[in-house]
Amino acid sequence: MCSAGSTPLGMYRKLVEFHKEGKLSFQYIKTFNMDEYVGIPDDHPESYHTYMWQNLFQHIDIDPTNVHILDGNAQNLQKECDDFEQSIKDAGGVDLFVGGIGPDGHIAFNEPGSSLVSRTRIKSLAVDTIQANARFFGGNVGQVPTMALTVGVGTVMDAREVMILITGSHKAFALYKAIEEGLNHMWTVSAFQQHPKTLFVCDEDATLELRVKTVKYFKGLMDVHNKLVQDPYLD
């Protein structure tokens, strides 16, 4: 399961690079995108369809029938959401979730206050999110979609592995809330504290609000982590 947004861009670039080098094929990969706006055409420059097409799908060898993105223009939106949940089940569940978070700790469009056991559904966007997105719609708040379809926190919790990408000092407080405070539906990303296999990937700036001992602890684990992810063919 993957996401749009600025955080995973670098990751997609790398995946495309690996594909072009012949190291990686997507022939047998199935993807589920975690959200999409309601009411903008799927070929709109700001739609997540367009994002995924431009940044990933057009560059790789994925089978289009293996790609799943919520249709924000479906006649029956709730049915679209239910069908999406079903198609995840039919695919055998999600192996890996990769996504970023908002500065308010939202995961997908699970805005602060969302249920931590929610499933795929229609969601009204928070004012903050709408205002933040206005820059993508010519600075015009009136053009920004006010609703989206999004997987729920519960949907993501079902993934066998969860990887959260957090970069930049503006996300530092959210990272602190995510891992140093308790479970909190006002910071929906904190739900993954209860997921057995969650990995937070962050840069230095994102750690600014963390305790020194937290940072030191995780930095101390880096040697082990690096061995886990190193190129197996390196030697």
Partner: peptide, 13 residues
């Protein structure tokens, strides 16, 4: 044809 449209709507590559 428009690749994005064919990819998502017709599910063709």
């Amino acid at each position: 044809v428009e690749p994005q449209e064919l990819f998502f709507r017709d599910r063709r590559a």
